[in-house]
Write a protein that binds this DNA or RNA. Structure first.
Length: 271
DNA sequence: CCATATACCTGGCAGC
DNA sequence: TGCTGCCAGGTATATG
């Protein structure tokens, strides 16, 4: 479910409400992708200072240390009144004096990890290699073009790897490449500067638009208040195999790259 | 160092 | 109805 826009929409939907809250209780359910890394009880009494985002991670700053939250493939966060009984797939609760933050994650690819600081080993292992923020100042067409030039892998996989630019997941990678008219299989290093600039623009546009529309995502996304996205962003290619391209009417094709589905228009997108 | 495969886990769906 | 196989928004880690 969650690529950068969904994570950002989640953050925006509860960060103001939880800032300043005091941790009253912590409950862990079934194991998630990584262990919490501290005794749950050790967090009691700490204050939530703010919630930031790095790529697809949420960073919940505490008066001492921070929690790194990742939603994996199927995770979602809710922040609401306490007292609701935990369901089968609710695997982490942070009860505060301002409400209950709850991670719901059927597949358990998500995680909540405690770190003493962002520089700490655990945090660095997860965040240290991440590329630039696509919605931040560091993401220029110039650096993006330079980064693409240095890599040999197909451009789709360079985007997904998140070491050049973070937050572009499987859906938005296909969508951005469509908007830029670039085949997902094109070798990254062979993308000309003008085409790199076009892809840069497409990534910025598609992500910013998805955030603005409340985390578009094509299926069942809802923010931490339980509200759905507006579903205004309709996919041009993702999950549209065999359907007509909205631009040229050619049938959309599907292929597999690195064990992930990729969708593209064989006419609009050039190698 | 690089590129590709594997592992983690549950649920929804198409096809029989 | 129920079974089987495939597919799913991610990413650290192992392997070549």
């Amino acid at each position: 479910m969650p690529e950068l826009p969904e994570v950002e929409v989640t953050r925006l939907s509860f960060a103001p409400a939880i800032a300043g809250a005091k941790v009253l209780d912590v409950r862990v359910g079934l194991p998630l992708r990584w262990p919490l890394g501290c005794e749950p009880g050790a967090l009691l009494g700490r204050q939530v200072l703010q919630v930031r985002r790095r790529g697809k991670y949420l960073l919940i700053d505490l008066s001492t240390g921070l929690l790194l939250v990742h939603l994996g493939m199927s995770g979602s966060l809710r922040f609401g009144p306490p007292g609701l009984p935990a369901g089968k797939h609710d695997h982490f609760d942070l009860l505060t004096d301002r409400g209950l933050l709850r991670l719901h994650d059927p597949r358990r690819f998500g995680a909540v990890v405690y770190a003493d600081s962002e520089q700490h080993a655990v945090a660095q292992k997860l965040l240290g290699h991440l590329g630039v923020e696509p919605l931040g100042d560091g993401f220029s067409a110039q650096m993006f073009a330079d980064g693409l030039k240095k890599r040999q892998a197909p451009v789709k996989q360079v985007l997904l790897a998140g070491e050049l630019v973070v937050g572009v997941g499987n859906i938005y990678a296909s969508e951005a490449l469509f908007l830029a008219c670039i085949r997902p299989t094109t070798r990254s290093s062979r993308i000309s500067k003008p085409r790199a600039a076009r892809l840069h623009r497409a990534i910025c546009d598609v992500l910013a638009q998805a955030v603005a529309q409340g985390g578009s995502s094509l299926r069942d996304f809802s923010n931490a208040q339980g509200q759905n996205g507006y579903f205004q962003l309709q996919a041009n290619v993702y999950d549209r195999t065999g359907q007509a391209c909205r631009v040229c009417a050619a049938p959309i094709k599907r292929l597999v790259q690195g064990q992930r589905s990729t969708f593209y228009c064989p006419l609009c997108q050039k190698p």
